[in-house]
């Protein structure tokens, strides 16, 4: 079985959405997939914060993100919550970066334990990545 590893460095709504869509795509087409959340990406693993995120461009203090969510709903695009549930249902793995948790001031208690399969550091990412045919950085 082939394998894909994606580093989710950004916590922006559009980028996390991209990571989840691509992750689900690879799972649906037969890969094993690991998402490695680090830096701002970690904020999206905090309890109830998956879609409480700014846009990478034209956020306008949250107005842009609000408009994007409205447009996505109108277009019938799946929410980050649904995509995350699908990702887990298809066997996707999530690793939270332990080192950057400290840097970002995020304790384990603040993170949604249901989402995270493992806590790791760069060595775990490298190990996963070396076993992968593809690795992406988002």
């Amino acid at each position: 079985m082939e394998k894909t590893t994606i580093v989710v460095h950004s916590g922006d709504l559009d980028k996390v959405l991209s990571a989840l869509i691509i992750g689900n795509g690879f799972l649906a087409m037969g890969d094993e997939v690991t998402l490695y959340f680090t830096f701002w990406g970690l904020q999206r693993l905090m309890k109830g914060k998956l879609s409480k995120a700014p846009l990478s461009k034209m956020n306008f203090f949250g107005l842009g993100a609000w408009m994007m969510k409205r447009k996505m709903k109108k277009a019938g695009v799946a929410t980050p919550e649904r995509l995350m549930a699908d990702f887990k249902a298809l066997g996707g793995r999530i690793i939270a970066c332990e080192m950057t948790m400290e840097v970002m001031g995020i304790s384990r208690e603040k993170l949604d334990a249901n989402l995270i399969d493992e806590f790791g550091t760069v060595g775990m990412y490298v190990d996963e990545s070396k076993k992968s045919q593809r690795t992406l950085f988002i």
Partner: peptide
């Protein structure tokens, strides 16, 4: 019906599983 990318792909995979 009414679902957009990537949901049809994801639901297909769930059914295959």
């Amino acid at each position: 019906l009414g679902e957009t990318c990537p949901i049809p792909l994801v639901e297909m995979r769930k059914a295959v599983m």
